[in-house]
Design a protein around this nucleic acid. Structure first.
Lengths: 93, 93
DNA sequence: TTGACATGCAAGTGGGCACTTGCCTAATCT
DNA sequence: AGATTAGGCAAGTGCCCACTTGCATGTCAA
């Protein structure tokens, strides 16, 4: 099982989460395309696939196969491990 | 400037933040000792010092010199970058 | 059934990061 | 002053991780 903290340490993986937060349930190819056009990330399909595996191991992404497509969803609940660990001050001056 | 996400990716650095959250304003030697005895971390003084540098670059730790001592404080405000980035669900089933 | 499409698997490579090693500076104590 | 204590600097090492490369599997349309 992979660490949630380690999972969000990589900029590309954060961009994947950004993308899935904005538009849930995308395929690998969609994610690749939108990462390229909207986030300026030119990683290969295999690289993104490996990032999705890591995010899945951390519980941040879940996937379901449908025919030859595989749709990926983001699940941000594991991030509570980050929020609940330290006393983060409220917004203020 | 170092990434907040990368700063909290390392288990030893998270333990340092844990320790400073429990007892603020410690010196390097105190941190080393308490990491060893209470967190089971046997890293050297130099290693901890380098970790403190990284935490400082991320804005998570600030330090003030006083004579031959240097006291370190934790500042968890940069963690809002993590909290505010994605919609983290509330506690619940 | 053949070709195109979406994805999976696995070995190999390069660079960065955590850690060590060794020596040095500065402040306090006797 | 000399010894001790707290910390700093910098080069070197080993390992992990992101990424690539090449091929294999499975699905759908014509």
């Amino acid at each position: 099982m992979i660490d949630v903290f380690a999972a969000i340490a990589d900029p590309t993986r954060r961009a994947i989460l950004d993308e899935l937060a904005e538009r849930d349930s995308q395929t690998l190819f969609e994610i690749c395309a939108r990462l390229t056009t909207r986030h300026g990330i030119g990683s290969s399909r295999q690289a993104i696939s490996q990032h999705l595996d890591i995010l899945a191991e951390a519980g941040l992404v879940r996937s379901e196969r449908s025919g030859r497509y595989k749709f990926h969803h983001a699940d941000f609940r594991p991030l509570r491990a980050v929020v609940d660990r330290w006393p983060i001050p409220e917004e203020g001056p």
